[in-house]
Amino acid sequence: MNKREAIFSAFPLCLCVSVVRFVPFALALLAVSPAPTFAGDGTRTDKPVIEIAKPGKCIAPAEEMRRNHMDMLKHQRDRTLRLGIRGEPVTLNGCIECHASQKTGSVLGEGNFCQSCHAYAAVKLDCFECHQPKAGFKATGVKP
């Protein structure tokens, strides 16, 4: 990780990157400006109601999880995939096992853990393009 970051910081390319990176923010600003937060009678949008299927102790206090879960997951993913470190306290599958809805078995879907909060915060949720959002899912595959 550190070496990678070193390359990155040494790069004058980061100039270009920051310019390009600004684009999503500008777009987000456009997208957010007519958001319900500022609309109508001036009251805030209701916070999402999140169903926690298995209440209990998380790996860190809720406050910290809320703020830092993305960084925790990002560092863990690089350690696990690139270095091969297994058995870390932070795992996406761990999140899913506890937080998947009891009804649908998934962390996605309206009112379910990941999606409801990400929808509220208007943050793109990219994990489940590849990761399985359902707890205890058994893959079967099909014959080619």
Binding site: I96, E129, C130, H131, Q132, F137
Partner: peptide, 15 residues
């Protein structure tokens, strides 16, 4: 797009 991944084997569209 895929939705039947093994939880231990993530894989998805466009990769």
């Amino acid at each position: 797009p895929l939705n039947d991944q093994n939880p231990e084997v993530p894989r998805g569209k466009g990769c």
